[in-house]
Amino acid sequence: MSAVVEIRGLEKRFGGIVVADGIDLTLTAGRVLGLIGPNGAGKTSLFNLISGVVRPDAGSVRLDGRPLDGMKMHQRARLGLSRTWQNLRLFPSLSVLDNLMVAPRRYAGESLLRLAFFPGVVRQAEAESRRKALQILERTGLADVANKPAGGLTFGQQKLVGVARALMNDARCLLLDEPMAGVEGQAYQTIQNVVRDLAASGVAVCVVEHNVAFIRDLCDEGVFMFAGRVLARGAVADLIADPRLTELYFGT
């Protein structure tokens, strides 16, 4: 089992708030890691640090052995890092299908020169990405709304589109930030299945979620974060059972 993402000594503070206090963490190929912790523990901040939204004060992140430090977001994504956002961040002026179609790891239509001189290449890449997007939409149960504007869907559907969009990358590592918040019914099973299939194909997945049942069902392992630190790592059931962690979680 190989390490896909290796985080070493990651530190970050915003003014007086410490969001990462010497975090060491490894995400392994084919495994789903659940990240739990109370509000403000620094879970989203950890994702931001890994994906390059926020620069760390110290420490390093490696993807497949390559140091990512100093790289921009798009460069990290092109190396196979994919994530979703706690607050959706879809493109409301694009249809669901187009939301997915801007997301492949390589986007032929991004270069004006290629468009001008090799329009055939672009056309082929577009057809390819369309096929793939439709397939993902089918798998996530969004095929019916493929041509609807993304902004017009229900919240739960939008959440699913966020996950579906992240799948277009063929990522080595997928970071899901609260995929279940506000989602109910059918989608529960859909996301579980999609993530399991993904892990089975060798992707390293990390899920932040407050829905403990979801985490317990899905994850091979869990990590408890508090105040920018990893306090415990182990089976999710054990983490939940630990009275000290529960106390920190609820703040009783």
């Binding site: 007086g16 708030i17 410490v18 109370p38 509000n39 403000g40 523990a41 407050h210 508090f226 105040a227 920018g228 306090l231 920190l248 979680y249 609820f250 703040g251 009783t252």
Partner: peptide, 11 residues
């Protein structure tokens, strides 16, 4: 700086 004894609010 939050410590282990701090009581974070949560829902």
């Amino acid at each position: 700086t939050p410590t282990l004894d701090a009581s974070p609010t949560s829902d």
